[in-house]
Design a protein around this nucleic acid. Structure first.
Length: 807
RNA sequence: GCCGAUGUGGCGGAAUAGGCAGACGCAAGGGACUUAAAAUCCCUCGAUGGCAACAUCGUGCCGGUUCGAGUCCGGCCAUCGGCACCA
């Protein structure tokens, strides 16, 4: 059969008739979303097919369950690769991106999916990024966007800012020189305001547990207390601790080298040592800083601090293992009960005082980092760590020297990128008025086309005078634009909303449409976005809810990660080992065969190494299905009569197939769904066509085609019409099964003697446990096997086995 | 280092709730049809021993619970993913 021609025919008809599209006038919406893709060079690869085609199969399945499915498609079109390509080739990012989108879109349209192209979004088009800028302004108004100094990766040789992925291992991807940190004033979104809610909301989501756990760890909630130490200089230093029960064991405190008090409290005598240490820290490269194996270092400031719980005076040090960005940027040193503090104290000869002991007989070596019983801890001695943690803070709270405190590891979201190919940040800097947001009616702030990409220490926008120099919207005086663009994750944090109302030029989306279609009912995409895109989209959704633009608080109620298709060598696909192009396969076998093979050959959520051998087998299997369709067309009607045992058998397989396939689609288990359909095909071949029951046969083939339709939409459409049915398959309903047909009169069960399989037994399937026991004890076959031995015990599991314990 | 996942034939992968391990395929081998090939159809296909019926072993390794363990428990090993001084 010429599958390629058949596919072409149906694709054209579907496109013309807009078959399978969402109807906004009907109820029972199902928002199916695949993570949109970056329009990278050239053609769709197997990974795209695996993600999009099989997600579409799921969407088609849902459609055939009666849902009003909305499955939009678009492009995440801003980003670094296009800009790097421009630097290398001189081809403008807009030119290459538009071209790539054209190619990808054409291929995606040829996939034969029910993607809703009328709702397409492309993030790099002004009609989209206008609203990305609008989003920024709303967050700014709400106090969720602010500016502060933050380091960027800087390559001194290329004179350019590098993204993290361009600076792996602290080395410039381009020239190999060591990357340094450089401070720039940049924009942040206050995602930390939502830390607690982002954590809480995870419980209600139907997401993979692994992904939820990753987000949980990323948010990193830790509950403890802040304790205030008064310094010899009169200054106060707060430290954060989760182990206030160890406070009596403090023998020093350590500030981060960047801590603002360091300069002030350092004594004359220690000045040089401290300055030297700080300049050493600043010089050390990212590689050294990142190494946890590195020995902890520090230096004494000359200052002292008073421990508020016992009045003891301890030394104040600085050390680069203390992070200025977490907690208060200062920690208390309890070497007896913390591994890092222990190493530090050993190295610098600081006191080690034990204040927690283990329960009787527990490992007693220092550092003892587990919970235990407080000792030498004044009035708190004898408390458990759990009790003590709270008791100590409560005592301090009364004296105004401490309080309960929760910290999160989550940092605010840095959204400034020193790049060209992104949405411009809609803010100007006026000499008189300061930071001035661009008024909404002036959006979009358009990205200029004529820029110079040569990396020479200045970002392309900064070099563009016409862009940079503007007028202040308030005083109409001279003003400068922000030379940076927004992180592309900002663009992708709200695209699912724009899909619902992509042509609106008055608002980013209508509240009515968004509330009706959202949240997304099933989101499919790679697991690599667990702590980035998926977290950002959740944050933006909650912020928009709080600003009154939408009525729900989670963007994606259910999530599935597709696995990754690896090269035949089991390694990640790269240009080198991706010998297989989907295009060739489609031209030879058709897209249905490719899609079905991708479904059959892998466990969807795991993926695995590519092997091209299987697709041919799928194509042959389609031929087998086609012969059944031909036979069904010519099958004669027979008079109604009771099923023969062969027909009962076939009917049982049919109903079992329907049951299993529907359950399998529901959980993206395409491989087992196809296996069950193959079993049905095998059963139909086994069934003797001489004097066959034409009605049953045709009904079986009809069900098979309906079940297969999500995975092989084109050829099934052809089969459907060959069978004489009208309408489009995607508008049909999945078959239902009859549970009565699943019950066979007899079942074969295993016969075990002393837990070893000794034979098979065919018994009445309705037997209860007791009936089965009785039957077995009297059964001739069993008596023969027993060889005169006494049965001590019978374990009977109806439908499974009987196990005779004999002695 | 910490957290998580995974480990089953030559290969991709099945196995509900602890109950016949290897469904469904691929590859391989044998046969039928054919002048021949392709296509199609049938058979074999975890290992070892045996002519055979059958027996023994077998789900990364070691141990445990149980009448019974791929599945549960304890301890290892390997691979992959995430975090990486978070006080």
């Amino acid at each position: 059969m010429d599958y390629v021609a058949i596919e072409k025919k149906w694709k054209e008809i579907w496109a013309k008739e807009k078959v399978g599209q969402y109807d906004e006038n009907k109820p029972d919406k199902f928002y199916m979303l695949e993570m949109f893709s970056y329009p990278s060079g050239a053609n769709l690869h197997l990974g795209h097919w695996y993600n999009f085609a099989l997600s579409d199969s799921f969407a088609r399945y849902k459609k055939m369950c009666g849902y009003n499915v909305f499955e939009p498609m678009g492009f995440d079109a801003f980003g670094l690769p296009a800009e790097n390509y421009a630097i290398k080739t001189g081809i403008h990012p807009q030119t290459s991106t538009d071209k790539n989108i054209e190619i990808m879109e054409k291929q995606l349209r040829e996939m034969g999916a029910i993607f809703d192209w009328d709702h397409e979004v492309v993030t790099c088009r002004p009609e989209y990024y206008k609203w990305t800028q609008w989003l920024f302004l709303q967050l700014y108004k709400k106090g969720l966007a602010y500016r502060k100094e933050a380091p960027v990766n800087w390559c001194p040789s290329c004179q350019t800012v590098l993204a993290n992925e361009q600076a792996t291992d602290g080395v410039c991807e381009r020239c190999g020189s060591a990357v340094v940190k450089k401070n720039l004033t940049q924009w942040f979104f206050k995602i930390t305001d939502y830390a607690e809610e982002l954590l809480d909301g995870l419980d209600g989501l139907k997401w993979p547990e692994k992904t939820k756990l990753m987000q949980k760890n990323w948010i990193g909630k830790s509950v403890g207390g802040e304790v205030e130490f008064i310094l010899s200089t009169g200054d106060k230093v707060k430290v954060f601790t989760t182990r206030a029960d160890t406070l009596y064991g403090v023998t020093y405190i350590v500030l981060a080298p960047e801590h603002p008090l360091v300069d002030k409290i350092t004594t004359q005598k220690q000045r040089k040592a401290v300055d030297d240490y700080i300049s050493e820290v600043n010089k050390s490269s990212e590689i050294d800083r990142l190494s946890t194996a590195k020995e902890k270092t520090g230096v004494f400031t000359g200052a002292f601090a008073v421990n508020p719980i016992n009045g003891k005076t301890v030394e104040v040090w600085i050390g680069d293992y203390v992070l200025y960005s977490y907690g208060t940027g200062a920690v208390m040193g309890v070497p007896a009960h913390d591994a890092r503090d222990f190493d530090f104290a050993k190295k610098y000869g600081l006191d080690i005082i034990r204040v927690i002991k283990g329960k009787e007989g527990v490992n007693d070596e220092l550092p003892f980092v587990e919970y235990g019983i407080m000792v030498d801890s004044g009035t708190q001695s004898g408390l458990t760590s759990d009790e003590g943690k709270l008791a100590v803070i409560k005592v301090l709270e009364k004296q105004g020297k401490g309080e309960l405190k929760t910290n999160y590891r989550l940092r605010d979201w840095l959204i400034s990128r020193q790049r060209y190919w992104g949405a411009p940040i809609p803010v100007v800097y006026c000499e008189h008025c300061g930071i001035v947001p661009v008024p909404e009616e002036q959006l979009p702030v358009k990205l200029p086309f004529d820029v110079n990409f040569t990396p020479d220490g200045t970002s392309p926008l900064l070099k563009h005078e016409g862009y940079m120099n503007t007028e202040c919207p308030i005083c109409h005086g001279k003003a400068k634009r922000d030379p940076d663009t927004l992180d592309t994750f900002v663009c992708s944090s709200w695209y699912y909303l724009r899909y619902t109302d992509n042509k609106d030029d008055k608002m980013p989306f209508s509240r009515e449409k968004a509330d009706k279609l959202c949240p997304v009912d099933m989101y499919v995409g790679g697991a690599e976005h667990a702590c980035m895109h998926l977290l950002y989209a959740r944050f933006i959704t909650k912020a928009l809810r709080d600003m009154g633009y939408i009525d729900f608080d989670e963007p994606f109620t259910a999530l599935t990660h597709q696995g990754m298709i690896l090269g035949a060598d089991g390694q990640k696909m790269s240009k080198r080992n991706s010998s297989e192009s989907p295009d060739e396969l489609i031209h030879t076998y058709g897209s249905d065969a490719l899609r079905t093979y991708l479904g059959f050959g892998f466990k969807y959520i795991e993926g695995g190494p590519w092997n091209k051998d299987g697709i041919k087998a799928i194509s042959k299997w389609f031929d087998r299905v086609q012969r059944l369709v031909d036979d069904a067309v010519s099958a004669e009607d027979t008079e109604e009569k009771a099923f023969t045992s062969a027909e009962n058998e076939l009917n049982c397989v049919l109903n079992n197939t329907i049951k299993c396939v529907l359950e399998d689609y529901e959980i993206f288990s395409f491989n087992t769904a196809v296996a069950r359909m193959m079993e049905l095909v095998n059963a139909l071949y086994r069934y003797d066509r001489e004097g066959m029951n034409g009605k049953l046969f045709r009904e079986s083939v009809r069900s098979l085609i309906l079940l297969l339709a999500p995975l092989a939409p084109h050829i099934c459409e052809e089969f459907w019409h060959n069978l004489g049915f009208d309408g489009y398959l995607v508008e049909q309903r999945m078959p239902t099964y009859d549970s009565a047909a699943l019950v066979k009169p007899e079942v074969e069960i295993a016969l075990q003697i002393n837990s070893k399989i000794r034979g098979k037994l065919t018994v009445d399937s309705s037997f209860t446990k007791e009936e089965l026991e009785k039957h077995v004890a009297e059964c001739e076959q069993v008596v023969a096997l027993l060889d005169g031995k006494q049965i001590k015990k019978i374990i009977a599991i109806p439908g499974r086995l009987v196990n005779l314990i004999v002695g």
